[in-house]
């Protein structure tokens, strides 16, 4: 720390342009290291301290508020084109601590720690009394809806059989009585029409993911399911990522993010963490 300043750090405005640059680097870092769920956008810079680093550079100690977007971490859509989840969808907020080094105009994340929490049910009810609330993934309706939706998708698909990778979001809606789910699928080496035992179908070496949204309406005497999936182009598999085992160990600076609702029975998908989002931009096929 420089002599005579007492505190050893400099107080700067949270909306200072350099602080904003450091915050955006931090949020990009967060998104590149998320293994499941949805990418986040910067909502507010809560606090900042700037520490002088010897012999060169400064370290930004940041507290950031982020918001969940509608783009899954496997979705190659540029972050700028991703929408923030609205309150009516029971939005999830992230609270993050970062240390970002700036040296010679380059920003490097040294430390990160994030936690996420959904908005309170009371707040959602205030703005939308009939909106659904986030539901745990092991809820009976959620499991049933995902299965029905995946079966419907595969039944209409004459080609590859797609397997469930992750349930990413689920809401039970009171009116009309229905269940909304968002989940990730991946192409396998089985064909949709001939699969007998899905457990024997293996994900392709060159991963091809799809992101699905489904709605199952519970009606008297039956149910009605609708599903739409966006299948992304094949992603070359980074040599360092192992999708068959548990989530890959992350480096010391990698953020830990708690998801708002627990995921069940899911393998850790291969994420774009080894590449920048820009390097994965491809036109989606539906």
């Amino acid at each position: 720390a420089p002599h005579g300043t007492g505190q050893g750090f400099k107080e700067v405005a949270c909306d200072d342009p350099e602080v904003e640059r450091a915050a955006l680097v931090a949020v990009n870092y967060l998104n590149q290291h998320l293994l499941h769920g949805f990418r986040h956008l910067l909502n507010r810079i809560d606090k900042v301290k700037v520490w002088f680093r010897r012999p060169l550079g400064v370290v930004y100690e940041l507290e950031l508020d982020t918001l969940e977007t509608t783009c899954h971490v496997l979705d190659p859509t540029p972050l700028a084109n991703c929408s923030v989840r609205q309150l009516t969808e029971h939005a999830v907020e992230g609270d993050c601590d970062f240390h970002v080094l700036e040296q010679d105009g380059q920003f490097t994340v040294l430390y990160s720690q994030c936690h996420s929490n959904p908005d309170s049910a009371e707040d959602v009810r205030k703005v939308c009394p009939t909106c659904g609330l986030l539901t745990p993934f092991n809820d009976t309706n959620v499991v049933h809806t995902v299965k029905a939706a995946l079966d419907a998708f595969n039944a209409q698909n004459n080609g590859t059989y797609f397997k469930l990778v992750e349930i990413s979001r689920a809401q039970n809606v009171p009116l009309p009585v229905s269940t909304l789910v968002e989940f990730v699928v991946a192409a396998t080496d089985c064909t949709a029409q001939e699969v007998t035992d899905p457990a024997k179908c293996n994900l392709l070496a060159e991963k091809q993911y799809g992101f699905c949204k489904a709605n199952l309406v519970h009606k008297l005497g039956g149910e009605e399911v609708s599903v739409a999936c966006k299948v992304f182009q094949k992603q070359p598999q980074p040599a360092s990522v192992n999708t068959a085992g548990p989530a890959p160990a992350v480096d010391q600076a990698a953020p830990a993010v708690d998801q708002a609702a627990p995921a069940v029975d899911q393998a850790a998908p291969a994420g774009p963490q080894a590449d920048s989002p820009a390097s994965l931009v491809v036109g989606p096929m539906v």
Partner: peptide
């Protein structure tokens, strides 16, 4: 000592440095 309002030369309110602006909405 009676001082007229506005004649004390008080500084304008200090703008807090943080938190920064909310970009989307506060939850």
């Amino acid at each position: 000592k009676v001082v007229q309002p506005g004649s004390t030369g008080a500084a304008s309110p200090v703008v807090p440095l943080c938190p920064g602006r909310v970009r989307h909405f506060k939850i």
